[in-house]
Write a protein that binds this DNA or RNA. Sequence first.
RNA 1: GGAGGGCUCGCCUAGUGGCCGAUGGCGGCGGUCUUGAAAACCGCUAGGGGUGGUGACACUCCUCGUGGGUUCGAAUCCCACGCCCUCCGCCA
Length: 419
Amino acid sequence: MIDLRLLRDDPDAARASQRARGESEEAVDQLLRADEARRAAVQRFEALRAEQKRLGKQMPKASGAEKAELLARTKELAAEVKAAETAVTEAETALRLAHLALPNLIEEGAPHGGEDDYVVLREVGERPEIPEPKDHLELGERLRAIDVERGAKVSGSRFYYLTGVGAQLQLGLLQLAISQAVEYGFTPVIPPVLVKPESMEGTGFLGAHASEVYRLEADDLFLVGTSEVPLAAYHAGEILDLDQPIRYAGWSSCFRREAGSYGKDVRGILRVHQFDKVEMFSFCRPEQAHDEHLRLLAWEEEMLAKVEIPYRVIDVAAGDLGSSAARKYDCEAWVPSQGRYREVTSTSNCTTFQARRLNIRYRDETGRPQVAATLNGTLATTRWLIPILENHQQPDGSVRVPKALQPYVGGRDVLNTVR
RNA sequence: GGAGGGCUCGCCUAGUGGCCGAUGGCGGCGGUCUUGAAAACCGCUAGGGGUGGUGACACUCCUCGUGGGUUCGAAUCCCACGCCCUCCGCCA
């Protein structure tokens, strides 16, 4: 949810943001009208209510005919107050709907347009020359690292087993991510992955993403698609000390239904229903958010450097930001078998949008509560195994292990085909 | 699965129909005292909304888990729901 006061002061900023996203400007005006209507309703109610309280105070002192008259008047008033209160409730509901419907204002500088209008900020690392690259699944199967056949047998399509060095590589990768995060002052967190509806709602994943989310009907709980959800909701309703940003590194499994992606990326483990991830999450003051965002990006790039894979950084266009983000940078790793870059990290600056929903605040210099800013960014996921295997493959199907990961596979620098 | 108990301002707690937005303690902050500290004493210490003002601020309304009901009037009475806790059983 965006700041309504800001919206009243400068509705054109919101309209411009909507245009950049390729979304309706009418949503802005709807919200403005709903805001206005609510304030009018509130004022009507308050006037009546004040009168009711005033007369009510006279009641104990009154007696006889005076009391009877008072009673008659207050009785009438009571009905009016109740009607006015109902009107306020209705206006508030309408406002909330309009409020939820409007996405975050984009950060100045974010590219305008849709999915394909991203801007490449830089390409980093040398793409390897591999004449006939094997894809990650073939490599993974030869190494006995990835087993999608049995994944499908046991759980269905888009499920897999990581076995042997596959399991070790993933654990090592995530461990490496946690170690780096801790080194930079993050608090490592292993959060719950089942959350209540309000936690899911608060983080904005029940809007456009609702069909992406697994819901456990019997218990009315949701499986999280990222630890961003339990990390953001961790401080819901709290007033934090944000002299310094508060940083968490969440380690969790993530679950996604991948509804509507039938036939897309069906081979291997690029797009799966369940994977593991280490996610950075920051709470900070709004004025710190921009710099914090760049720090998160830098930490992502540091991790990519550690596993020695070529990548590029893109500045995601406004129309592809999702409702919460004001700006988003993705790192895309080079995938030799596909001859293109694929997303492996994503860092979003949600400014105060998410925190406002979750009611997460801090105290400013004057001691007044203000809405905090939240940011998130990927530090490692199962998907990283793809560029790691593919970029480091050798003609015989063996795979070189990046130095940083060697300790996690028994010190080996090469993983050899099994059998 | 069964049976109980509880939800009040950071924490604990008082409050059974108007004088309660709410008592007291702890903690926190500020001050007095002290060379300094402790102790003692004094003061301050929830959040949100609306209106007015450039502003410090002023006035006002809402909030005692949530929603409804009774009543002229509800933290207090009634109903429903939610959440937390304890015990028993079962499973790990």
